[in-house]
């Protein structure tokens, strides 16, 4: 359809009742700026938002770390466990970029290899937090009532339980394997992710588009997956990056307690080893380079997470009252 107005109903109203795209585009040519405004009449395409150079630097750093960690076995690196690669506590040089440690092992190679375990722990933990916490939170926020009370109780219980005690309990009884460390940190991530997912779901479940889907006859599963999930994932994706940063640091903390992964080494463990008083005095680079790598990665994760959340938060106030 378009025009059902009788012609000449009103002398000054010669234009279509529904000025839409075609009308606009078929109009006689006018000034550039004015034309732009006609475009604006129908659609507001101007996002006006940029992620910015810093964001891409952060992404670049994370990409570099990720690629290095994944490709470590194939990179022309010294064997990280090979003692006597250089002398004892050699300072950084052309051969050993980050110097060598007390056993003459290449710190650069060890930092790259250390990223593997740190990233795996961070990733597994946050994926677990997202999967369990996210599901719990969305169900609680959507169904409310009894489901909400149960889920909230569970999350409060997890929050109330001292995280360190839980980690000690699990790792001491199950042994400090990669799986146990990752899963322990994952359990600790469930409650914060769940709280956020629940809050976001509560916000969106009230919105008319969810009610409209119900009126159309969509079932609960469809509403959760099609209507709620895409919206709830936005704040969650930001939190995931922040959470990964927190987990990487937490793993370092566990390493200080001697609770990190037994076989192999993470950044945390490298820092602990480099932080022995004599090593720190004679070869500060042994601790400094893993610390630097962890610092930059955590900074990048935090910044990217924050920026991403801001960027994805679409402007819904296309018009104001």
């Amino acid at each position: 359809m378009t025009e059902q107005l009788p012609p000449d109903r009103h002398p000054r109203q010669q234009r279509d009742a529904h000025l839409h795209v075609q009308d606009i585009e078929s109009q006689t040519s006018v000034q550039g700026g004015y034309e732009a405004m006609l475009g604006g009449l129908s659609f507001d395409d101007s996002r006006g938002r940029r992620l910015g150079v810093t964001f891409w630097c952060a992404i670049g750093w994370m990409g570099l770390v990720l690629v290095a960690a994944v490709a470590a076995p194939w990179l022309p690196l010294a064997d990280p466990d090979q003692t006597g690669f250089g002398g004892r506590l050699d300072p950084p040089s052309g051969d050993a970029w980050f110097g060598t440690d007390g056993n003459g092992r290449d710190v650069f190679s060890r930092t790259v290899w250390g990223a593997r375990i740190s990233l795996v722990v961070g990733f597994v933990a946050i994926v677990m937090g997202m999967a369990f916490g996210g599901t719990l939170g969305i169900l609680a926020g959507y169904f409310r009532g009894t489901v909400d009370r149960l889920a909230s109780f569970l999350m409060f219980a997890l929050l109330a339980f001292p995280g360190l005690v839980l980690a000690l309990l699990f790792i001491a009884s199950l042994g400090p394997s990669l799986t146990v460390v990752s899963l322990t940190l994952g359990i600790l991530a469930i409650a914060p992710v769940g709280r956020l997912a629940r809050a976001a779901t509560l916000l969106y479940a009230e919105r008319e588009f969810v009610q409209a889907a119900r009126v159309l006859g969509a079932g609960h599963g469809r509403i959760i997956v099609r209507e709620l999930l895409p919206n709830v994932l936005v704040p969650m994706s930001g939190l995931a990056l922040l959470g990964m940063a927190i987990t990487v640091v937490a793993e370092g903390g566990l390493a200080f307690l001697g609770l990190s992964v037994a076989d192999g080494f993470s950044w945390g463990k490298l820092i602990v080893m480099g932080a022995a008083p004599r090593t720190l005095r004679d070869g500060p680079w042994v601790a400094m380079f893993p610390i630097g790598a962890m610092f930059l990665t955590v900074l990048a994760l935090n910044y990217a997470g924050d920026r991403l959340r801001w960027y994805l938060d679409v402007r819904e106030l296309a018009f104001e009252r």
Binding site: Q13, R15, D16, A17, H18, L19, D23, I24, Q31, G33, Y34, A36, M37, L38, G40, L41, D44, S46, A318, F319
Partner: peptide, 20 residues
């Protein structure tokens, strides 16, 4: 009816805002 919608302040220019 009046065709179209009121302009966003960001779309304004030196022309008459009601012209479109």
């Amino acid at each position: 009816p009046i065709a179209g919608r009121p302009p966003n302040p960001s779309e304004l220019g030196p022309w008459c805002p009601f012209a479109p």
